[in-house]
Protein backbone atom coordinates (compact mmCIF):
# COMPACT_ATOMS: atom_id res chain seq x y z
CA UNK A 1 0.00 0.00 0.00
CA UNK A 2 1.08 3.56 -0.56
CA UNK A 3 -0.24 6.94 0.42
CA UNK A 4 -2.65 8.44 -2.05
CA UNK A 5 -1.20 11.45 -3.86
CA UNK A 6 -3.37 14.01 -2.05
CA UNK A 7 -3.04 12.37 1.34
CA UNK A 8 -6.62 11.16 1.28
CA UNK A 9 -5.77 7.61 2.24
CA UNK A 10 -4.11 4.41 1.17
CA UNK A 11 -4.16 2.74 -2.22
CA UNK A 12 -2.89 -0.66 -3.26
CA UNK A 13 -0.27 0.04 -5.89
CA UNK A 14 1.27 -3.05 -7.45
CA UNK A 15 4.31 -3.64 -9.58
CA UNK A 16 2.07 -4.26 -12.57
CA UNK A 17 0.08 -1.08 -12.07
CA UNK A 18 3.03 1.28 -12.47
CA UNK A 19 3.88 2.76 -15.87
CA UNK A 20 6.65 1.09 -17.90
CA UNK A 21 10.08 2.55 -17.22
CA UNK A 22 13.12 3.19 -19.34
CA UNK A 23 15.26 0.07 -19.02
CA UNK A 24 19.04 0.28 -18.99
CA UNK A 25 21.19 -2.81 -18.97
CA UNK A 26 24.82 -1.74 -18.60
CA UNK A 27 27.70 -4.20 -18.60
CA UNK A 28 30.18 -2.47 -16.34
CA UNK A 29 30.41 -0.32 -13.24
CA UNK A 30 31.67 2.55 -15.35
CA UNK A 31 28.59 2.35 -17.53
CA UNK A 32 26.35 2.34 -14.48
CA UNK A 33 28.10 5.40 -13.10
CA UNK A 34 27.75 7.16 -16.44
CA UNK A 35 24.05 6.34 -16.53
CA UNK A 36 23.61 7.61 -13.00
CA UNK A 37 25.18 10.88 -13.96
CA UNK A 38 22.45 11.33 -16.58
CA UNK A 39 19.64 9.78 -14.54
CA UNK A 40 20.43 10.55 -10.93
CA UNK A 41 17.02 9.32 -9.79
CA UNK A 42 17.32 6.00 -11.62
CA UNK A 43 16.47 2.86 -9.71
CA UNK A 44 19.18 0.25 -9.56
CA UNK A 45 17.82 -3.25 -9.77
CA UNK A 46 19.49 -6.59 -9.21
CA UNK A 47 17.56 -9.51 -7.72
CA UNK A 48 14.39 -7.40 -7.50
CA UNK A 49 13.03 -9.43 -4.58
CA UNK A 50 12.70 -6.36 -2.38
CA UNK A 51 12.32 -3.84 -5.18
CA UNK A 52 8.94 -5.37 -5.94
CA UNK A 53 7.84 -4.59 -2.42
CA UNK A 54 9.16 -1.06 -2.73
CA UNK A 55 7.09 -0.59 -5.87
CA UNK A 56 4.05 -1.67 -3.89
CA UNK A 57 4.97 0.86 -1.23
CA UNK A 58 4.91 3.69 -3.72
CA UNK A 59 8.16 3.78 -5.59
CA UNK A 60 7.69 4.54 -9.29
CA UNK A 61 10.89 4.35 -11.33
CA UNK A 62 11.24 6.36 -14.51
CA UNK A 63 14.58 4.81 -15.28
CA UNK A 64 15.65 1.41 -14.13
CA UNK A 65 19.24 0.25 -14.33
CA UNK A 66 19.51 -3.50 -14.19
CA UNK A 67 22.94 -4.42 -12.86
CA UNK A 68 22.44 -8.13 -13.10
CA UNK A 69 24.89 -8.35 -15.98
CA UNK A 70 27.69 -6.37 -14.42
CA UNK A 71 30.45 -8.94 -13.79
CA UNK A 72 32.42 -6.58 -11.52
CA UNK A 73 29.61 -6.79 -9.00
CA UNK A 74 29.84 -10.56 -8.80
CA UNK A 75 33.37 -10.83 -7.47
CA UNK A 76 34.84 -11.82 -4.15
CA UNK A 77 38.42 -10.70 -3.55
CA UNK A 78 40.80 -10.85 -0.62
CA UNK A 79 43.75 -8.50 -0.88
CA UNK A 80 45.95 -7.12 1.86
CA UNK A 81 43.72 -8.27 4.69
CA UNK A 82 40.58 -6.81 3.16
CA UNK A 83 37.79 -9.06 1.97
CA UNK A 84 35.63 -7.50 -0.75
CA UNK A 85 32.26 -8.98 -1.61
CA UNK A 86 30.50 -7.77 -4.76
CA UNK A 87 27.11 -6.22 -4.19
CA UNK A 88 25.51 -8.16 -7.03
CA UNK A 89 26.14 -11.59 -5.56
CA UNK A 90 23.05 -13.45 -4.54
CA UNK A 91 22.88 -14.91 -1.07
CA UNK A 92 23.36 -18.32 -2.65
CA UNK A 93 26.34 -17.40 -4.80
CA UNK A 94 27.98 -15.31 -2.13
CA UNK A 95 27.63 -17.70 0.76
CA UNK A 96 28.98 -20.54 -1.35
CA UNK A 97 31.84 -18.61 -2.87
CA UNK A 98 35.03 -20.65 -2.37
CA UNK A 99 37.11 -17.63 -1.45
CA UNK A 100 34.63 -16.51 1.18
CA UNK A 101 34.35 -20.02 2.54
CA UNK A 102 38.11 -20.20 2.79
CA UNK A 103 38.59 -16.72 4.20
CA UNK A 104 35.67 -16.17 6.51
CA UNK A 105 33.74 -19.44 6.76
CA UNK A 106 31.71 -18.18 9.71
CA UNK A 107 30.29 -15.34 7.62
CA UNK A 108 29.63 -17.78 4.78
CA UNK A 109 27.71 -20.00 7.20
CA UNK A 110 25.68 -17.14 8.67
CA UNK A 111 24.92 -15.76 5.23
CA UNK A 112 23.79 -19.20 4.05
CA UNK A 113 21.20 -19.23 6.81
CA UNK A 114 19.22 -16.10 6.05
CA UNK A 115 16.01 -15.79 4.02
CA UNK A 116 14.69 -18.92 2.29
CA UNK A 117 16.12 -21.26 -0.33
CA UNK A 118 14.09 -19.60 -3.07
CA UNK A 119 14.94 -16.05 -2.04
CA UNK A 120 18.62 -16.93 -1.68
CA UNK A 121 18.78 -17.71 -5.38
CA UNK A 122 17.55 -14.24 -6.37
CA UNK A 123 18.20 -11.72 -3.63
CA UNK A 124 21.54 -9.98 -3.54
CA UNK A 125 23.66 -8.68 -0.72
CA UNK A 126 23.39 -5.19 -2.18
CA UNK A 127 19.63 -5.32 -2.30
CA UNK A 128 19.46 -6.67 1.22
CA UNK A 129 21.48 -3.70 2.48
CA UNK A 130 19.88 -0.94 0.45
CA UNK A 131 16.35 -2.12 1.15
CA UNK A 132 16.98 -0.69 4.60
CA UNK A 133 14.47 -2.98 6.22
CA UNK A 134 15.08 -3.56 9.87
CA UNK A 135 14.25 -7.23 9.61
CA UNK A 136 16.82 -7.94 6.92
CA UNK A 137 19.97 -9.50 8.23
CA UNK A 138 22.98 -8.44 6.17
CA UNK A 139 23.22 -5.08 7.95
CA UNK A 140 23.42 -7.00 11.21
CA UNK A 141 26.13 -9.38 10.01
CA UNK A 142 28.15 -6.66 8.35
CA UNK A 143 27.60 -4.20 11.18
CA UNK A 144 29.36 -6.46 13.64
CA UNK A 145 32.15 -6.97 11.12
CA UNK A 146 32.46 -3.17 10.85
CA UNK A 147 32.29 -3.54 7.11
CA UNK A 148 32.41 -0.59 4.76
CA UNK A 149 30.00 -0.10 1.92
CA UNK A 150 31.88 0.73 -1.25
CA UNK A 151 30.14 3.15 -3.56
CA UNK A 152 31.01 4.18 -7.10
CA UNK A 153 30.02 7.56 -8.42
CA UNK A 154 29.09 8.83 -4.94
CA UNK A 155 30.31 11.79 -2.96
CA UNK A 156 31.97 9.44 -0.50
CA UNK A 157 33.39 6.17 -1.84
CA UNK A 158 33.12 4.38 1.50
CA UNK A 159 30.45 4.39 4.13
CA UNK A 160 29.97 2.43 7.31
CA UNK A 161 26.99 0.10 7.45
CA UNK A 162 25.23 2.40 9.90
CA UNK A 163 25.05 5.02 7.18
CA UNK A 164 22.14 3.02 5.79
CA UNK A 165 20.00 4.22 8.66
CA UNK A 166 20.88 7.83 8.28
CA UNK A 167 22.94 7.81 11.44
CA UNK A 168 26.63 8.37 12.01
CA UNK A 169 28.37 10.51 9.49
CA UNK A 170 25.70 10.59 6.87
CA UNK A 171 25.71 13.82 4.97
CA UNK A 172 22.01 14.39 4.93
CA UNK A 173 21.92 14.65 1.20
CA UNK A 174 21.32 11.01 0.53
CA UNK A 175 18.73 10.46 3.19
CA UNK A 176 15.74 11.82 4.87
CA UNK A 177 17.29 10.38 7.99
CA UNK A 178 14.03 9.17 9.40
CA UNK A 179 13.91 6.18 11.69
CA UNK A 180 11.57 4.19 9.50
CA UNK A 181 11.70 0.81 8.00
CA UNK A 182 12.12 0.14 4.32
CA UNK A 183 11.51 2.25 1.31
CA UNK A 184 10.19 5.11 3.41
CA UNK A 185 13.70 5.66 4.70
CA UNK A 186 14.69 7.00 1.31
CA UNK A 187 15.99 3.69 0.11
CA UNK A 188 16.25 4.80 -3.46
CA UNK A 189 18.00 8.05 -2.77
CA UNK A 190 21.45 6.55 -2.51
CA UNK A 191 23.44 8.44 -5.06
CA UNK A 192 26.00 6.25 -6.70
CA UNK A 193 26.26 2.53 -7.06
CA UNK A 194 26.91 0.16 -4.21
CA UNK A 195 29.65 -1.99 -5.67
CA UNK A 196 30.35 -4.15 -2.67
CA UNK A 197 31.30 -4.40 0.96
CA UNK A 198 34.77 -4.48 2.41
CA UNK A 199 35.69 -6.32 5.58
CA UNK A 200 38.99 -5.90 7.33
CA UNK A 201 40.11 -9.41 8.23
CA UNK A 202 43.64 -8.53 9.33
CA UNK A 203 42.83 -8.43 13.04
CA UNK A 204 39.64 -10.49 13.01
CA UNK A 205 39.77 -13.43 15.36
CA UNK A 206 36.28 -14.77 15.35
CA UNK A 207 32.80 -14.11 14.02
CA UNK A 208 29.47 -15.70 14.82
CA UNK A 209 25.77 -15.09 14.42
CA UNK A 210 22.86 -16.02 16.69
CA UNK A 211 19.45 -15.98 15.00
CA UNK A 212 17.63 -18.55 17.12
CA UNK A 213 15.57 -15.77 18.71
CA UNK A 214 14.70 -14.14 15.42
CA UNK A 215 12.75 -11.97 14.89
CA UNK A 216 12.75 -10.74 18.49
CA UNK A 217 16.51 -10.32 18.73
CA UNK A 218 19.46 -11.43 16.66
CA UNK A 219 23.12 -10.92 17.50
CA UNK A 220 26.15 -10.89 15.22
CA UNK A 221 29.45 -10.77 17.03
CA UNK A 222 33.01 -10.21 15.94
CA UNK A 223 36.17 -10.45 18.02
CA UNK A 224 39.21 -8.54 16.93
CA UNK A 225 42.68 -8.11 18.38
CA UNK A 226 43.28 -4.44 18.99
CA UNK A 227 46.44 -3.29 20.72
CA UNK A 228 46.93 -6.67 22.30
CA UNK A 229 43.43 -6.80 23.78
CA UNK A 230 40.27 -8.30 22.39
CA UNK A 231 37.57 -6.03 21.13
CA UNK A 232 34.14 -7.55 20.91
CA UNK A 233 31.72 -5.88 18.54
CA UNK A 234 28.11 -6.93 18.52
CA UNK A 235 25.28 -5.83 16.29
CA UNK A 236 21.79 -6.38 17.59
CA UNK A 237 19.00 -6.87 15.07
CA UNK A 238 15.25 -6.88 15.48
CA UNK A 239 12.12 -6.76 13.44
CA UNK A 240 10.93 -3.27 14.19
CA UNK A 241 13.99 -1.27 15.06
CA UNK A 242 17.23 -0.37 13.33
CA UNK A 243 20.20 -2.50 14.29
CA UNK A 244 22.43 -1.28 17.10
CA UNK A 245 26.16 -1.88 17.21
CA UNK A 246 28.13 -1.77 20.44
CA UNK A 247 31.70 -2.68 21.28
CA UNK A 248 33.48 -3.64 24.43
CA UNK A 249 37.11 -4.37 25.06
CA UNK A 250 38.25 -7.28 27.16
CA UNK A 251 41.67 -7.01 28.64
CA UNK A 252 42.72 -10.47 27.65
CA UNK A 253 44.86 -11.70 24.78
CA UNK A 254 43.07 -14.87 23.84
CA UNK A 255 39.42 -15.81 23.39
CA UNK A 256 40.01 -18.76 25.69
CA UNK A 257 40.36 -16.21 28.48
CA UNK A 258 37.07 -14.45 27.75
CA UNK A 259 34.33 -14.67 30.35
CA UNK A 260 31.10 -15.08 28.38
CA UNK A 261 28.88 -13.80 31.16
CA UNK A 262 30.77 -10.60 31.74
CA UNK A 263 31.13 -9.86 28.01
CA UNK A 264 27.39 -10.46 27.62
CA UNK A 265 26.59 -8.10 30.48
CA UNK A 266 29.05 -5.52 29.17
CA UNK A 267 27.48 -5.49 25.73
CA UNK A 268 23.96 -5.41 27.14
CA UNK A 269 24.78 -2.51 29.45
CA UNK A 270 26.02 -0.45 26.51
CA UNK A 271 22.74 -0.76 24.63
CA UNK A 272 20.71 2.42 24.37
CA UNK A 273 17.72 2.80 26.67
CA UNK A 274 15.19 2.77 23.85
CA UNK A 275 15.83 -0.67 22.46
CA UNK A 276 12.28 -1.85 23.05
CA UNK A 277 10.17 -2.59 20.02
CA UNK A 278 6.84 -4.23 19.29
CA UNK A 279 8.41 -7.65 19.63
CA UNK A 280 10.05 -7.13 22.99
CA UNK A 281 10.41 -4.77 25.91
CA UNK A 282 13.71 -2.99 26.51
CA UNK A 283 14.52 -4.98 29.60
CA UNK A 284 13.74 -8.32 27.97
CA UNK A 285 15.74 -7.48 24.87
CA UNK A 286 18.63 -6.32 27.00
CA UNK A 287 18.49 -9.58 28.88
CA UNK A 288 18.35 -11.56 25.62
CA UNK A 289 21.37 -9.72 24.28
CA UNK A 290 23.36 -10.61 27.39
CA UNK A 291 22.38 -14.26 27.00
CA UNK A 292 23.00 -14.48 23.26
CA UNK A 293 26.29 -12.58 23.40
CA UNK A 294 27.34 -14.85 26.24
CA UNK A 295 26.54 -17.89 24.16
CA UNK A 296 28.44 -16.59 21.16
CA UNK A 297 31.46 -15.74 23.30
CA UNK A 298 31.35 -19.19 24.87
CA UNK A 299 31.40 -20.69 21.40
CA UNK A 300 34.33 -18.46 20.45
CA UNK A 301 36.15 -19.40 23.62
CA UNK A 302 35.58 -23.10 23.04
CA UNK A 303 36.48 -22.93 19.36
CA UNK A 304 40.04 -22.15 20.31
CA UNK A 305 40.17 -19.26 17.85
CA UNK A 306 43.66 -17.89 18.02
CA UNK A 307 44.88 -16.44 14.78
CA UNK A 308 42.88 -14.01 12.72
CA UNK A 309 40.69 -15.94 10.36
CA UNK A 310 42.13 -16.33 6.93
CA UNK A 311 45.34 -14.72 7.99
CA UNK A 312 48.37 -16.90 8.16
CA UNK A 313 49.90 -16.31 11.54
Amino acid sequence: MRAQALGAGLVAQTQSSIPPFELHRPGSVAEVVALLAVHPEAVIAAGCTDLTAQLREGRVPRDLISVRRVPDLQQVRHDGGVLRIGAGLTHHEGSRHPLLQATLPSLAAAWADIATVRIRYSATIGGNLLARRFRYEMPVLLGALEADLELAGATEPRRPVDWLWGGGDHDGGDHDGSERDGAGAGAWRTRGLLTGVAIDTSDLLWFGYERSMRPTTTVALAIRVVDGSLRVTATIGSEYRRPVTVSTTADVAHPTDLDPGSVGRAVASRLPDDIEDRAGSAEYRRHLVAVLVGRLVATARDSGAQAPEGVTA
Binding site: C48, T49, S122
Partner: peptide, 11 residues
Protein backbone atom coordinates in the same frame (compact mmCIF):
# COMPACT_ATOMS: atom_id res chain seq x y z
CA UNK B 1 13.09 -21.57 -8.21
CA UNK B 2 12.11 -17.90 -8.39
CA UNK B 3 9.01 -15.93 -7.52
CA UNK B 4 7.67 -14.85 -10.90
CA UNK B 5 5.77 -11.96 -9.24
CA UNK B 6 9.10 -10.43 -8.28
CA UNK B 7 10.92 -11.09 -11.52
CA UNK B 8 10.68 -8.75 -14.45
CA UNK B 9 10.12 -10.41 -17.78
CA UNK B 10 13.24 -8.73 -19.18
CA UNK B 11 15.31 -10.71 -16.71
Amino acid sequence: PVASCSTFAFD
